[in-house]
Design a protein around this nucleic acid. Structure first.
Lengths: 211, 211
DNA sequence: GTCACATTGTGAATCTGCTCACGATATGGC
DNA sequence: GCCATATCGTGAGCAGATTCACAATGTGAC
């Protein structure tokens, strides 16, 4: 029933690529073209699209508009969803800016910080509140998604607060492994690990003429 | 010979957790304890540690200091490595702050931007230069790792510039799929996709009493 | 010194996801 | 209208990663 995480990630990527192509005026493409743009194989693309139950033509490929719509049907919510962000530092601001006005189905509706100088204003279209207001805001608006961009030391406390307030999905940027109840979905992004990975797999590669 | 990407990611995570434990004064632990903290199974931990050729005791578990050292031997470079960052926006600044003084073996040594008001100063210990200086700096210092935090529209151009200057590993934060020669290692972090993923897997979860 | 015990290290089985390869199919050329 | 062609949709096979399960091991209790 539910999509595998890897499949989901690729579908989201395909849609993003297809949106860009649509904006450029392209109307249709073949599986191998999308594959090339996404960095996967053509067979992978076709397999990923199976649950979308969309069908392409051997001579024209897939109609992009239909494809985007079908992918949306698989991965989007029926009704718009809201998220909150906690931690209005550089990273928090970058994320607010990034998402502002980007996706009407999924938006950040409030930001929180315990620093009084950072709150009670609007940043990139998002209202900023003191941290104390978090529980009531989240509860009253029935918000289910939280984004954690506070320093490592505060992350577990903030995550607990979010979960107690009713959040069941978290996106954590703090470099700590959060311990959460099993009913909460957790996605972690760790810059440090990513950079170490790049460093590791970069070693031994040859610049220029390598293949 | 080379570690699988998934194994690498977990080893990096284990080390981070173990570093934290060491700082708290813990000296040894069992595979199931590390597993719990990392969110994986005990068998997974033991299997991941096989290439480290470290051996634990049935009664004491693993000696943490030795473990950290052994993992370092697997994933760290022999000599210190340097990276450069391009795009001094909120995200770029957040990343500079994040890495400043964190890892002596892997540091960001220069940042670039094409906005003249952002350069010729030091930010979180990193010197900021105009974009025009990038090729010579990267070439002269033999830098192999680049971090891209520019807007989507500029990302491909910046990536090409980095690769031409000799970089063979990229960490890309811009929401575009970069097209690069096969000899360049590419790691992409896409906030939009991550948030969509959280939203998707959060749906249908029940707050509170769930298990 | 011996026993009981909990944990380690790892071969084997399992599971998940990816690729292969091929019959089915839609279209343009003649 | 029919043929040649390139791509689609998907069952089957394959590869890589995870879990299982158990013999080997080291230590503390007595």
């Amino acid at each position: 029933m539910a999509l595998a995480q890897k499949t989901f990630g690729r579908l989201s990527l395909y849609r993003h690529i297809l949106d860009t192509l649509l904006a450029e005026g392209t109307r249709s493409l073949f599986s191998h073209e999308l594959a090339q743009l996404a960095g996967v194989t053509a067979a992978q693309v076709r397999r990923d699209l199976m649950p979308a139950r969309i069908t392409g033509s051997p001579t024209k490929g897939y109609e992009i508009r239909a494809l985007v719509h079908a992918i949306g049907g698989l991965i989007d919510a029926r009704s718009p969803e809201s998220a909150v962000l906690v931690g209005i530092g550089n990273l928090g601001r970058a994320i607010l800016a990034h998402f502002h006005g980007r996706n009407p189905k999924l938006s950040i509706v409030a930001a929180f910080d315990d620093d009084p100088t950072k709150v009670n204003r609007i940043l990139h279209g998002t209202v900023c509140y003191p941290l104390d207001d978090l529980p009531t805001t989240v509860r009253d608006q029935g918000i289910r998604i939280g984004i954690v961009t506070v320093p490592a030391a505060a992350a577990q406390t903030v995550a607990d607060l979010l979960v107690q307030s009713g959040v069941t999905g978290l996106l954590n940027f703090a470099p700590v492994r959060l311990q959460l109840p099993a009913n909460v979905y957790l996605e972690e992004i760790d810059f440090g690990m990513s950079l170490e990975k790049v460093a590791y797999y970069t070693r031994g590669r040859v610049a220029k003429g390598g293949r």
